[in-house]
Design a protein around this nucleic acid. Structure first.
Length: 431
RNA sequence: GGAGAGGUGCCGGAGUGGACGAACGGGGCGGUCUCGAAAACCGUUGUGGUCCUUGCGGGCCACCGUGGGUUCGAAUCCCACCCUCUCCGCCA
């Protein structure tokens, strides 16, 4: 969430920012609740002070006749305090709920735009492969995969319903090679620390990472034990340092994790239903940084570059686009997407999204650092970026590396992790 | 799942309902001493909110796992929950 004090002191700037985001939030309610809150608190505190002083006196009195009137008086004060406390709790709760609805505000460098159609492509590396380059009409992965026997949608549906899939043989082995290779890449070349977190978390983790209340309909939730399935590794990693005060010398803290991601995709019913582009369960290698406010934008650029390095090493054309204000989402102050070209599907696929969330998550999860020894703690900035999402990277590999006979060449960097397999061949007998 | 023990500050660890924001020890920081260091000695050492102040700073309030309750007054008593540990059961 954003800083209440900032809203109090700059309400017009906040409202202006919300207009740029093409969204709404109950700013006027917040201002009213905030001023109510402070008024009640002032009154409450002076009563509590009064009671404290009197109680101390009562404790020191021996004379019962003097004591009793004071006790009676304080009983009345106690009733008023209890009443004010209840009002304060109520206002506080409503204020908190209202604050939770306010999205992060965009960084000044974010271009203004209404929606994703206005996102700005800021660079492209490699040229999208055309049918001409291939010498044949490239197939989409949902045809290539089943034909190779490495992707099975019917059985996915049989086990778990639509938008679930099964991988077999060299398909799952390719994904496993990718995961290990990407993890090692970020660990060895980019200095990230690997972490293996739980994949189900408590409700407060969802609030801390900014998933609740906004995305409640997209989250799998086990009611029995009140545990929530993560939709991204970002959620547990954010909460790793919840309620902690880090030392400035530890920053930036860089983590990388391989986790499954579970998403209900309730709002994309009917969209992207073919293939593995949008599924309920997928794997992702996620990079994450805890940084100082001063360095977070620099760290965003390097995070983006770290993710792009994967595309480069896989030798698949990619482009980077910057999200405009209207497509920033709820949590990010600035965001880049990395898209790989998928010649069979004929579209750019979002394989990574790199965001600077500034203090939005840190404030919710109370993640702070001490700028100098002995100094007051401040909220850290948090950044996250996929490095990369597995199914879409698999799509890009299958579609870019396909050959006329339907076989798929294994990218060179992955071969040693696939027992030297260089090509995923069509099993002619099975067709 | 059953039985029991326990959660106090950076750490360890006390704490009869009133003098406890919290003994004591350790650590950290500052100082004395020293050429420098160690030792010793002295001092200091949490987080947040709110109000006052240009600032320095100051007043007040809250916080002893979390949330309620009892009471004039709660770290201390009661209830619920969370977490940790030990033993038993179950189990990859």
């Amino acid at each position: 969430m954003i800083d209440l004090r900032y809203i109090r002191e700059h309400p017009d700037e906040v409202k202006e920012a919300l207009r740029k985001l093409h969204t709404e939030a109950p700013i006027d309610d917040i201002l009213q609740l905030d001023s109510d809150w402070r008024e009640i608190l002032g009154e409450l505190e002076s009563l509590r002070h009064q009671r404290r002083v009197a109680s101390k006196e009562i404790g020191q009195m021996d004379d019962q006749d003097q004591r009793q009137p004071l006790i009676d008086e304080m009983r009345g004060v106690g009733v008023r305090i209890a009443d004010l406390e209840e009002r304060l709790r109520d206002v506080e709760h409503r204020l908190q709920q209202a604050l939770y609805q306010v999205p992060n505000l965009p960084h000044e460098s974010v271009p203004i735009g209404a929606d994703e159609s206005e996102n700005v492509v800021i660079r492209q590396e490699g040229d999208p492969k055309t049918a001409e380059d291939f010498g044949f009409e490239p197939l989409p992965h949902w045809e290539l995969g089943p034909r190779l026997g490495i992707l099975d949608f019917e059985r996915g549906a049989k086990l778990s319903g639509s938008r679930f899939f099964v991988m077999f043989g060299l398909g799952s082995r390719l994904q496993r090679a990718l995961i290990q290779w990407m993890l090692d890449f970020h660990i060895e070349k980019h200095g990230y620390n690997e972490v293996y977190p739980p994949f189900v978390v408590r409700e407060e983790c969802m609030w801390g990472a900014g998933q609740l209340p906004k995305f409640i309909d997209n989250i799998y939730h086990d009611v029995e034990d009140d545990l929530w399935l993560i939709g991204t590794g970002e959620i547990p990693i954010t909460n790793l340092h919840r309620d902690e005060i880090l030392e400035a010398s530890e920053l930036p803290k860089k983590y990388v994790a391989h986790t499954p991601c579970f998403r209900r995709e309730k709002f994309s019913a009917g969209r992207d239903v073919r293939g593995i582009k949008r599924v309920h369960q997928f794997d992702k290698v996620e990079m994450y940084k805890f940084t100082t406010p001063e360095s977070s934008y620099e760290e965003l650029e390097s995070l983006l570059d770290d993710a792009e390095d994967i595309c480069r090493a896989l030798e698949i054309p990619h482009r980077v686009s910057q999200m405009v204000t209207g497509d920033l989402g709820f949590i990010a102050a600035k965001k880049y997407d990395i898209e790989m070209w998928a010649p069979g599907s004929g579209e750019w696929l979002e394989v990574s999204s790199c965001s600077n969330c500034e203090a939005f998550q840190a404030r919710r999860a109370e993640i702070r650092y001490r700028p100098k020894p002995g100094a007051k703690p401040e909220h850290v900035h948090t950044l996250n970026g996929s490095g990369l999402a597995l199914p879409r990277t698999m799509i890009a590999i299958l579609e870019n590396y396909q050959q006329a006979d339907g076989s798929v060449i294994v990218p060179e960097v992955l071969r040693s992790r696939m027992g030297g397999v260089e090509i995923i061949k069509l099993d002619v007998i099975d067709v």
